[in-house]
């Protein structure tokens, strides 16, 4: 029986090759067929999860609640030093100097990346902004958020910090960071589903020792991850509790 592995759709094409390499490595280590499936959107991925088609997932923290509390997924590991932080960014020429300068009617460019959107909206609260008094444009990719700012069709853009720094210096030079979250706890996590639960300890051990051999290190390099950190079930429960305080 082949299992299915997927990663959160918020990663650009440069990261996808690394996950394919990871999947090949994991199949060899486990002597198990694992199909790597990518979904174009969070909605499509959630549908696949609901239909029971996902067995291993590198999950967005926003989706971790549903996966762990409703679908019986268990935490395996998290990449060390890779917290998800959100940024609020403006055009470099914008008059806006701080969040408090923003007014009702502000035009926001965002993506369907749920944790970044939630954190972005929270950072606008000091200006009394919320979903009822802003205009939101949802873009398919962060580069399109940047485009909205450069064209002046949106006043602010929400970015995943990592995605912002992945953009070219030429694009970044035309934008200015207003505020960056420093939450540290919210991050993507690797979760195993009920069908693979009997291999959980084995997978955990493989991941934790991955940086100790040359091949494993090469795979980590392709993912731009230093190492995997052990994740207790309570760690992910705590992150879910924290996320739940942020979601209206």
């Amino acid at each position: 029986m082949a299992y299915q592995f997927t990663v959160s759709p918020d990663f650009g094409p440069s990261h996808i090759a690394g996950w394919q390499i990871f999947n090949t490595w994991l199949q060899r280590q486990l002597s198990e067929g694992i199909h790597f499936e990518l979904y174009d959107s969070f909605d499509q991925q959630r549908q696949a999860i609901l239909e029971g088609n996902v067995d291993l997932i590198y999950a967005n923290p926003y989706d971790a609640a549903m996966l762990v509390r409703e679908k019986g997924f268990m935490a395996i590991a998290k990449p060390s030093g890779k917290a998800d932080e959100a940024m609020i960014v403006v055009n470099a020429e914008s008059n806006i100097q701080s969040v408090e300068d923003l007014k009702a009617g502000t035009k926001i460019a965002t993506t369907d990346d749920p944790d970044v959107h939630v954190m972005g909206m929270i950072m606008l609260e000091p200006a009394d902004l919320n979903t009822t008094n802003v205009e939101i444009t949802q873009c398919d990719a962060y580069v399109l958020v940047a485009k909205q700012l450069l064209r002046g069709t949106s006043d602010v853009g929400f970015f995943l910090e990592e995605a912002y720094h992945d953009m070219s210096a030429m694009v970044r030079d035309q934008m200015r960071i207003l505020v960056t979250s420093q939450i540290h706890i919210i991050q993507h996590v690797l979760l195993v589903g009920p069908k693979l639960a009997n291999r959980k300890d084995e997978i955990t051990n493989l991941l934790e020792s991955m940086n100790k051999d040359e091949k494993g290190q090469g795979v980590l390099d392709s993912l731009d991850i230093k190492s995997w950190e052990h994740l207790e079930h309570e760690d992910v429960e705590f992150m879910i509790d924290l996320m739940s305080t942020l979601v209206e």
């Binding site: 929270i122 609260e125 000091p126 009394d128 705590f238 509790d241 924290l242």
Partner: peptide, 8 residues
Amino acid sequence: TSVRRKPS
């Protein structure tokens, strides 16, 4: 758990 953020 209590989580505080910047107020308006």
